[in-house]
Nucleic acid binder design. Structure first.
Length: 751
RNA sequence: GCCCGAGUGGCGGAAUUGGUAUACGCGUUCGACUUAAAAUCGAAUGGUCUCUACCAUAUGGGUUCAAGUCCCAUCUCGGGCACCA
């Protein structure tokens, strides 16, 4: 007797798909398009993990499903290859990041091919290849030309271990998102993208997205729009004014003091001889305090400047204080304190014995000028690191910035010996002295040594997929118009940063006339994590990592791995790996194989069962309920084992199975000489000749009546039969009323 | 502290619109096949009880002919935000 041999079947079909370029597509097809992608991975040296497999399999199931349904499906793949791990590895071993990255990419590619993904391999992209980052630099220049890429000197997050600045989005609880060390504030001149220009649209359009509510809420909170007003306060015995931001200008009659952030530039102008040293001391300490300390210690601290302002509503003299509960980066870095209306101001007033005055009246004419502020700041994109996309800018001898002309792109990363970053505020590229020199319009200039945040590289890659080898455009306008926007995007990370940035670039390039849509991602599937069998997070140090390639090579094969990861639970929930359940899925595929290759066909009429299964599996895939789709297939196979299977039963089984277990299903379809067109259920087969009526008494199940289907309309007869039933009679003497629900095939007798 | 989710057998989970709670899988038990084991096939499997039946979807109330599903309160766990004026 032959046995199911997944490794042989999978090698066979993988070769067929590779040789026939089975998943390559273009724009000439008359079919409707579908464009699907996962969040492309960072190819680490460790190779694929089971989390990747879950993410990519979801996309693969959908890609194959839509393809079987007759869509022209684009399912490309790429690698997000710039970043710190490759550079840190280079510092440790001396192996250049480029070499290490190439090795890792090729390892990833080989592993992906063993999983049988329906990838159009002709479209593979890699963000650290010059053909790609040439266009990342081009994108930067488009933003630069419109004033949306600019330099600004300010206090920035600095990671002392990675020796680079970080964006707000990359600081988690005061710690570096990569190395976990505590970040510091450092005053530096840095490059920014003006994402705040699009804050309103980014916020307002969130509601229209078919994305999980969780992600939508996080995006909204991140942008954090507040409507309010800016109000100017005159200072006693001074020509200076202090502008505050408030969301409640109507409470101005209760404003009894002002508070400035310790970094506020006006402080030095308003301190008096008496207060000067105390204020300076306070500000120095506040700046020295780490952000963690400032966040953790919510005990209010502050110091009086010695100066007074005039409340424009009450005309009263109110003291001006400095306190670190006011943040320099939000609003104007200064507030009017209304202790009667604001909890924090009250706490401060109580501690320092400042007046708390009830808000006596509301001004008839609103004070100040209306102003909207956002919690979101501009996106800091400079990185003082070697292994990133060089910012295509040069400085003349006066320090003015000049864009590198487009014909000189790409600005190639030079090979260097020493990758080590330092605290000079410049990347290791500063050591490449020859590379630094550049001539623009005959003038000798010096190149920018910062590289771009990796998130810039991933902010346009979806569009590159439409024309990955185009040497004249970042993306071909006709091709992008055909494929985009992305119909389904799947991933389990980057809830805020990446998804916000790519929306920002989309809106910008739409305004430039370069994209015919304003939202890049129609539907987002946000998948959960897979934990180790011990229920903990998988990690090398705990030694509990499940290697997906081991699962394949142990003999289970890729089909079992894929199907198991879809069966493990709802795709959007975290799950725990269970090796025994892997065996259960293998048994199921084995039973499919046995039905097809080792069992005699019968002429059993299973129309109802078969069409019910088609309906269930189709609808479950449509709502991304992959685990229940697979259990429907299991039920189908269990039933076919009992009653026997016709050829048609097996053809349908193979077709429905193909998105999950494509190798085995292809083998079965070949044996059955059938194509893989997605089967369509017919309503007429969903009705059966008999119908089971549930009889309840007071809502409790008391009997089941099996009747011919046409009796379902005969409520009177059903009621009569139910009341005659022995078991029902025990609970009913005289029915008060009966409720018949035809749709539920249920009769409830109220006794 | 504020805002979201979630809580169902020994375990992962199903129940899509309020209508048969526990599908499917794992595990366990029994049986068939085998010299034996594995594999495979078949059967049983929420609890109490001999059956009828009763009790069970975190806890306590409520609405309804009917509640895992809706409402109120409480507890537990998970996630996000957190001095944003």
């Amino acid at each position: 007797m032959n046995r199911y041999n997944p490794l042989a079947i999978e090698a066979k079909w993988q070769k067929i798909w590779e040789d026939s370029r089975a998943f390559e597509v273009d724009e000439s097809s008359p079919k409707p398009k579908k464009f699907l992608a996962e969040m492309f991975p960072y190819p680490s040296g460790a190779g694929l993990h089971v989390g990747h497999v879950r993410n990519f399999t979801i996309v693969d199931v959908l890609a194959r499903y839509y393809s079987q349904k007759g869509y022209n499906v684009l399912r490309p793949f790429g690698y997000d290859t710039f970043g710190l791990p490759a550079e840190n590895y280079a510092i440790k071993t001396g192996v250049s990041p480029k070499v290490a990255t190439d090795t890792n990419v090729s390892n990833f590619r080989n592993q992906l091919k063993k999983l049988g993904f329906a990838i159009d391999w002709s479209r593979e992209i890699n963000t650290s290849s010059p053909e790609y980052y040439k266009w990342t630099q081009w994108c930067f220049l488009q933003l630069y030309k419109k004033g949306l890429a600019y330099q600004k000197e300010s206090y920035q997050w600095w990671c002392p271990v990675d020796q680079t600045v970080l964006a707000n989005e990359q600081v988690e609880n005061g710690h570096c998102w990569r190395c976990g060390s505590e970040v510091e504030k450092k005053k530096m001149k840095q490059w920014f993208f003006k994402i705040t220009e699009y804050a309103d649209e980014l916020l307002d359009d969130v509601d229209s997205l078919d994305w999980p509510d969780k992600i939508k809420t996080m995006q909204k909170n991140w942008i954090g729009r507040s409507e309010g007003a800016e109000i100017d306060f005159g200072i006693v015995d001074s020509k200076e004014e202090i502008t505050v931001f408030t969301t409640r200008p109507d409470t101005i009659f209760g404003a009894t003091f002002l508070v400035l952030a310790p970094e506020h530039p006006l402080i030095k102008n308003i301190v008096t001889d008496k207060t000067k040293s105390a204020v300076e001391e306070y500000c120095k300490n506040a700046l020295k305090k780490s952000e963690i300390e400032r966040q953790e210690n919510k005990e209010k601290t502050g110091v009086f400047t010695g100066s007074y302002a005039i409340n424009p509503a009450t005309k009263e003299k109110i003291p001006i204080w400095v306190a670190d509960y006011v943040l320099i980066g939000y609003g104007t870095g200064a507030i009017m304190a209304v202790p009667a209306g604001d909890e924090r101001d009250r706490e401060f007033a109580e501690k320092f014995d400042l007046p708390i005055v009830e808000i006596s009246k509301v001004p008839e004419k609103p004070f100040g000028t209306p102003k909207t502020t956002y919690r979101m700041r501009d996106w800091l994109i400079s990185r003082q690191r070697y292994w990133g996309c060089p910012i295509p800018i040069a400085y003349d001898k006066d320090g003015n910035t000049h864009p590198i002309p487009e014909e000189q792109l790409p600005v190639i990363i030079p090979e260097i010996e020493d990758y080590k970053p330092d605290n000079s505020g410049r990347s290791a590229l500063a050591k490449a002295t020859d590379w630094l020199k550049v001539t623009i319009d005959g003038e000798e200039m010096s190149r920018e040594t910062d590289t771009l945040d990796g998130y810039a590289c991933s902010s346009w890659y979806l569009w590159r997929y439409a024309s990955p080898h185009d040497s004249a455009h970042a993306w071909d306008p006709k091709k992008i118009a055909y494929w985009s926007p992305l119909d389904i995007y799947c991933g389990g990370d980057h809830a805020v940063a990446h998804l916000l940035y790519i929306r920002f670039w989309c809106k910008f390039f739409a305004d430039e006339g370069k994209l015919p849509f304003r939202e890049p991602i129609t539907k987002l599937l946000y998948n959960g994590y897979i934990n180790a069998p011990d229920g903990k997070k998988m990690s090398k140090s705990k030694g509990n990592v499940v290697d997906p390639l081991d699962v394949i090579n142990d003999g289970y094969g890729a089909d079992t791995l894929r199907t198991y990861e879809m069966f493990i639970g709802p795709y959007d929930q975290d799950a725990t790996w269970n090796p025994r359940s892997v065996g259960g899925v293998y048994r199921f595929l084995n039973r499919c194989w046995t039905l097809c290759f080792e069992t005699e066909l019968t002429d059993t009429k299973n129309d109802n069962l078969r069409h019910r299964t088609i309906k269930k599996v189709t609808e479950d895939i449509d709502r991304a309920s992959f685990n229940t789709a697979i259990s429907a297939l299991m039920e189908y196979v269990n039933e076919l084992y009992k009653v026997g299977a016709s050829k048609e039963d097996l053809v349908v089984l193979s077709k429905l199975l193909k998105p999950f277990a494509p190798h085995l299903a292809s083998e079965m379809l070949e044996q059955l000489s059938a194509n893989d067109d997605w089967p369509v259920f017919e309503e007429k087969h969903l009705t059966s000749e008999t119908v089971q009526i549930i009889v309840q008494v007071n809502g409790k199940l008391r009997a089941k009546l099996d009747l011919p289907a046409e009796e379902l309309d005969n409520e009177e007869k059903i009621t009569a039969l139910a009341l005659k039933n022995e078991n029902v009679k025990k609970f009913v003497t005289t029915p008060k009323k009966t409720i018949f629900v035809k749709k539920a095939k249920l009769l409830n007798i109220v006794a």
